[in-house]
Simulated scan of single mutants.
Amino acid sequence: MKIFICLLLVFGAISLSTPQTVVATEGAEVFDIRKGEVVQLIPNSNILQNQAKHWLSSIIGIVGSFKIEPTEGIAIKIPLTPPFSITNNWINGTVTEVIMFVGKSKNYYPTLLVFTKNNRFVAVHIRYHNLKSFLKENKLYSSELNLAAAPLS
């Protein structure tokens, strides 16, 4: 019996440490930062995937702060299916997921947290690229959100 339990623990540890392929068919999760919970799901579609790719193509620079997440606002987590390869001044790799943070403070600019296949991540600012339209189409827009592009350093 002890051998069976040991084998079960070993196989369990191996399965947890082995990379798993995750297929993102559910789409995006919208997280209310203040409430601390997912408040909406956006179905996966070509439009959703293309929006994330547009954000990636409009990067204007790295976030210069260690504080990536605003204290109030929303976060939109979008898994990219299929993963998207990108090479620019800030990212060189295959992007598997992005999280768009949009805050309410006038000092917090929309921030895109980008995750790559190699388990790396980078926080970047983007040009104002259809963000307001995207938020309105998905019933997420609020005039309290700061949608201004970050000033170039």
Rank of each mutant, 00 (worst) to 15 (best):
E69L: 08
S45L: 03
I78Y: 02
T87W: 01
P82L: 13
I33H: 14
K77T: 12
F84T: 15
K35Q: 13
K67Y: 15
A28R: 12
I76T: 07
I62L: 11
P82F: 02
D32Q: 05
P83H: 07
G61L: 10
Q51H: 15
S45Q: 06
V38C: 03
K53H: 13
I47V: 09
V23N: 09
I42Q: 05
G64I: 01
A28P: 01
G36H: 12
N50A: 11
L80E: 09
E72L: 14
Q40I: 03
G36P: 11
N44C: 00
L56A: 15
L41R: 08
I60V: 15
G73I: 08
V38R: 10
A75T: 01
L80S: 07
G73V: 02
V22T: 04
G61V: 02
S65D: 08
E72V: 09
N46Y: 03
I59Q: 03
I47G: 08
S57F: 02
L48P: 01
N50W: 03
F84L: 09
F66V: 06
I33N: 05
G36R: 09
A28C: 10
W55K: 11
P82S: 14
G61Y: 06
I42Y: 00
T71G: 05
F84W: 14
T81D: 15
I33P: 11
N50D: 13
A52P: 11
I78P: 00
V38W: 02
Q51M: 12
V23W: 02
S65I: 06
K35W: 03
L56N: 13
A24I: 02
E72Y: 09
F31D: 07
I78R: 04
K53M: 14
P43D: 09
L80T: 09
I42P: 04
V23Y: 06
I78T: 11
F84D: 09
A24N: 06
V22W: 04
A28W: 00
V30L: 11
Q49D: 13
L41F: 07
K53F: 07
P70S: 06
F66C: 05
N44H: 06
L80I: 10
K53V: 14
P79D: 11
I76G: 00
I47C: 00
V63H: 05
L80M: 12
P83R: 11
V38T: 14
I60P: 00
L80A: 05
Q40H: 08
I33A: 14
I68C: 00
G73P: 05
S57L: 15
H54S: 15
T87Y: 05
F84P: 09
I47N: 12
G73W: 04
I42S: 02
I76W: 02
I76Q: 00
Q40F: 13
Q49N: 13
W55F: 14
N46H: 00
K35V: 12
I59K: 01
E69T: 14
